[in-house]
Simulated scan of single mutants.
Amino acid sequence: MGGNGMLITSGYNFEGYDIVNYLGHESVQVVLGTGIFSSFDASISDLLGTRSSAYEDKLNLAEKAGKEKLMEKAGNNGGNAIIGLDIDYTTFTNDVIAVIVGGTIVKVERKMPEKEVKKVCSMEYNTTVPIRILESLIVYQISTDKMFLRLYGKNYSDSKVKGLEVKIKIETIFNDIVEIPEMTFADICESEEKEIVTEYNNLKLENNVFKLIKSVSVQMMKYVTEKNEIVEIAADQYKKIDLTQEQLTDIRKIYGNDAVNRAYKSDSGWVCYCGMENENKEHKCHLCKREVQVEALRPISMNDSEGTFCLYDHIDYIENLKNAKEIYDYLEKLNCTDVYFNGIILAEIKKLVDGERMYGSMKRSAIIKLKELYEKE
């Protein structure tokens, strides 16, 4: 890129831009007096294996001046870019060289994106069904002026899914609800980890809705198993996730893509990260098969108390960090107001961070220290 934002290239296009107008070829000349650095002197210096830096500096300055003059001419002609840049040299006498800089002046515009994409978490879940829709990917294809929807989910059952019939509810930033009462998906891929992805389906909405989307809820009405069994689902069995999109995204970074909240103690047992109610004697969730340290769980009201720190609310995420430095940075961002947390726990982890400069990653030591300090509290 040249001065004043002018684009310039020896090629004939710019990535990410369209040429909308060709304004003609132009050239400028810069005359250079070489003085004592004659062509004879330059040839002698080459034979001796040295280079005349002063001579080269003059040529570089002339090229730069030529480009600046050409860009100025391009701007005066209404252009904002130059393609096909070419630099030539001609000698008038032994001591005078002309640098000729030429190119085609054009006007360019940044390309419009071919599509816009928005991925949002589904804000409802149902623990009575072994299939769960987790996220919706909405694509607005500008060239066709159409929107398309793809669903991502989790299959907790042993039987693969062949088809889905769903109801879509879209909430806008104005809190308006747009409903699509029925949409079917018949081309569904399932990974070894039991994650499912649907094909893209045409989303018949007014295009101005795309930029207004705040959240999406997907309710399965029916699904078809690989044995061609059709399972119908009652709409009143769905529960709303009482979090914002941002809060749910953060929860899922820690506990997994199917999490709807932290695990917590309930009146009759405990509730898993996936939202499934389990009995106290069980340490593995009925639905998602997670193994949970039930004795470490607390009631939801305690989990949500402002300023408190519960290690087991964060340990799954911490286990995936690389070193003590990442653990310290994560803990610091929690903005916990607990005195013991700030005065003791953070200080001890900081010591391990300092030790990593000499001993390498101390992730395991940091996790052990966290557990020791948390149990002392």
Rank of each mutant, 00 (worst) to 15 (best):
V161R: 05
V28R: 05
T144N: 01
T93L: 06
E63Y: 06
K119L: 09
D57S: 13
R150S: 13
T90N: 12
K58V: 02
Y89M: 12
P113Q: 12
D46G: 08
K64W: 02
Y156Q: 04
D57G: 04
S122D: 09
E68H: 04
L149M: 09
D95S: 13
F37G: 04
N126F: 12
K115R: 09
A81I: 01
G103T: 10
G33K: 13
K160T: 13
T104R: 13
L164S: 03
V99N: 03
K162N: 14
V161Q: 07
G78N: 09
L61P: 03
T50M: 03
S27W: 00
S157Q: 09
K69R: 08
V161P: 02
I131V: 15
I82P: 00
E56K: 15
K160W: 10
V129Y: 11
I131L: 15
F92N: 08
I133S: 12
S45I: 02
R150Q: 15
N76T: 08
T128G: 05
S27D: 00
E109I: 10
G102A: 07
I82D: 03
F148R: 01
L32T: 15
S122P: 02
K111I: 04
K162R: 12
L59Q: 12
D41F: 05
L70N: 03
S122V: 07
L164A: 04
S52A: 13
K107I: 00
D57T: 11
A62I: 09
K160P: 06
V117F: 11
F92T: 14
G103D: 04
D145I: 01
D145E: 08
S45R: 12
V129I: 15
I87S: 04
G102P: 02
P113T: 11
S143P: 00
L47S: 14
D41W: 11
A42C: 05
V101T: 12
I83H: 06
D57N: 14
K58Q: 15
N80G: 11
R110N: 04
T34N: 08
T104A: 10
D158N: 14
Y152K: 15
A65N: 11
F40I: 06
I105F: 03
K162M: 10
L164E: 06
P130L: 01
T127K: 04
L134R: 11
L164P: 02
E56D: 15
M71P: 01
F92G: 01
M123K: 09
I105D: 07
F148G: 01
A54W: 03
E56W: 11
I82Y: 05
K67P: 03
Y140M: 08
N94S: 11
S159C: 07
K58E: 12
I36L: 11
E114M: 12
N155M: 07
A98L: 05
L61Y: 06
M71E: 11
S39F: 09
S53D: 14
K73M: 07
E56L: 13
T144L: 00
V96F: 08
V139F: 00
L59C: 06
V108Q: 03
I138F: 00
T34Q: 05
Q141Y: 05
I133Y: 10
I131P: 03
V30Q: 08
